[in-house]
Amino acid sequence: MGYLLQQLINGITLGMIYGLIAIGYTMVYGIIGMINFAHGELFMIAAFISIISFLVLGLAGIGWVPVALLIVLAATMLLTSVYGWALERVAYRPLRHSPRLAALITAIGMSIFLQNYVQLLQGARIKPLQPVISGGFQFFTDGKFTVTLSYLQILIAVLTVALMLVFTWVINRTALGRSQRACQQDLKMASLVGVNVDRTISLTFVIGASLASVAGLMFLLLYGVIDFFIGFLAGIKAFTAAVLGGIGSIPGAMLGGLLIGLIEALWSAYFTVEYKDVAAFSILVLVLVFRPTGLLGKPDIEKV
């Protein structure tokens, strides 16, 4: 029982990271209908910016954890957003009216480019970081197993929930959110009624990148090691999460992320660690076969 509870906690923590990345996929897909394959690389870049920020802060002597975390969070979000913006501007905007496959190939090319760019600049070795936040509550024990809820996990949960609240507010209440929903429904019509489509799409990438950047920071804090290749698997799993939840649906992305995280944690705990990725993909196939629109997606009606 305790073991199961612990795995559930771990899975939810992991799932929140996936969910934050998945939102970027689902928003971009919702608006311009392309898989932003390089989104996982933004997550990776964010993790690198975070580790560099931590090191610089360590050098500057700012050691108090809350302040350091806030500064790192702000720097990472800001600088990763620049990457998200530039990515759209350089690689995707020229291809907006091209065949979808062209955009997909560009995205894959961008992903390869960014991976090698970071590898070249920061080296191929894995980068370790000393734990920034340690400790936690031991709040439950069933005699054999003590369930621990670490401060870091609490932080991740709080941060994710706060971000989701802000994000939901942005989407539902602000002008940006309105134009974004308009673009999602019909890009051409939105431009006809005066929505600045280019700006909206740019901002979508910026928002997606900043959510992914928070995920990158969390990943760094949770695992403590990163390398230039982490974006690939995290990206695929987040996309799986987005599809699982129903692509285009933002709550669906979070739900899908949580489910993928839980599946991964439980599978690793009760079956084999090696095949946890296979499990995630198998679930994806099953969902797509039996419910192709995902859990919360709207049915895709095909008109002739």
């Binding site: 350089v90 690689a91 020229p94 291809l95 091209s98 062209a102 955009a103 190939i105 560009t106 894959i108 090319g109 961008m110 992903s111 390869i112 480019f113 960014l114 991976q115 090698n116």
Partner: peptide, 10 residues
């Protein structure tokens, strides 16, 4: 290689 993929497609 990645840059070439992007450039050719754009």
């Amino acid at each position: 290689f990645g840059a070439a993929m992007v450039t050719i497609m754009v």
